[in-house]
């Protein structure tokens, strides 16, 4: 008499149903896993782009490109910039130095630069350090107002672009995930409907011997929950494995922008996915019980 304990009975009937409808069980777990996998991928990308944006944003340097200035004008400008609040250092980069850097950056692929050696197209600039990244935008504003300064470049612009990208990624991810989660819920609801049908005799007996509505519902809720949670576990495992691979291979390709460390990021992600899987599973079975089990 294995079914003597209430929870033992619930677990037993939920487990048996899942084995009996093994194809529906697999389909349910699969759709939950796929929808959460999509969400997970989008979240991981968004987190990393955000982190890169934060790194860029935290840079304290900016570059002021100069128009045509005489040496005295330039020195006056340098004094003026040094006096600005928040500025802690300033370095002059001549046209020749800028050219050397450009050659260095492109290394051996400099063929396309040929023909420019004669008249160097680059501009003179000041590289300015500030005492904190919060000051950068403020200092940039001041610089733009100074005569002799043609253009000011700093991390902020890159950051804005990156943030626009994350917003897109997040939006696409959420829309896609919602669609897939609905599909997953629908498939779970259908699975539970089949279970309700298969167990209608047992349900009838439960009713006339005086089972409460909740007692009758529990095995179905547990089945839905199990489908959702197992699906979430599958997606979390695939994501963890994929992310480790990505971290390892991207370190070589772009060592300057390493991915966010897998720990505790993946732990948090796994918890989120498990919670969502549980919600999808319970949601699916609830929908089904409302429609097909009038208790």
């Amino acid at each position: 008499m294995v079914k003597l304990r209430t929870w033992g009975y619930f677990a037993d009937s939920a487990g048996k149903s899942m084995l009996r409808n093994s194809w529906m069980t697999l389909a349910s777990i699969g759709t939950v896993a796929v929808s959460l996998l999509v969400l997970g991928v989008f979240l991981l990308v968004a987190v990393n782009v955000n982190t890169i944006a934060a790194q860029v944003e935290s840079q304290v340097e900016l570059t002021a490109y100069l128009g045509k200035l005489s040496v005295t004008e330039r020195q006056a400008l340098e004094t003026e910039i040094k006096a600005l609040p928040g500025v802690t250092g300033i370095t002059f980069v001549s046209k020749d130095q800028a050219w050397e850097r450009l050659l260095g950056w492109y290394g051996n692929d400099r063929a396309f630069l040929a023909g420019w050696e004669e008249e160097n197209p680059l501009r003179e600039s000041f590289e300015i350090r500030t005492d904190s990244s919060h000051r950068v935008a403020e200092v940039a504003n001041e610089l733009t107002g100074l005569s002799g300064v043609e253009e000011v470049l700093y991390g902020r612009e890159i950051v804005d672009k990156l943030l626009a990208i994350t917003r897109m990624i997040r939006l696409v991810g959420i829309v896609l995930m919602c669609g897939l989660a609905l599909a997953a819920m629908f498939i779970i609801a259908n699975t539970i409907r089949i279970t309700v049908f298969a167990r209608r005799r047992e349900i009838g007996i439960m009713r006339f011997v005086g089972a409460t509505d909740w007692f009758i519902r529990w095995p179905f809720v547990m089945e839905g929950l199990a489908l959702g949670v197992v699906g979430a576990l599958v997606s979390a495992s695939v994501l963890a494995w994929g992310y480790y691979l990505a971290v390892r291979s991207l370190v070589r390709v772009m060592p300057f922008w390493p991915l966010v460390s897998p720990w505790p990021l993946l732990q948090h992600l796994a918890l989120l996915l498990l919670a969502l899987g549980a919600v999808i599973g319970i949601g699916g079975s609830t929908v089904s019980l409302r429609r097909y089990l009038d208790v």
Binding site: M1, K3, L4, Y9, M206, V209, G210, A211
Partner: peptide, 13 residues
């Protein structure tokens, strides 16, 4: 037989 009878008691906990 036993499980069928016991069920009425399991159900009322």
């Amino acid at each position: 037989v036993e499980e069928n009878v016991a069920f009425a008691m399991v159900v009322v906990e």
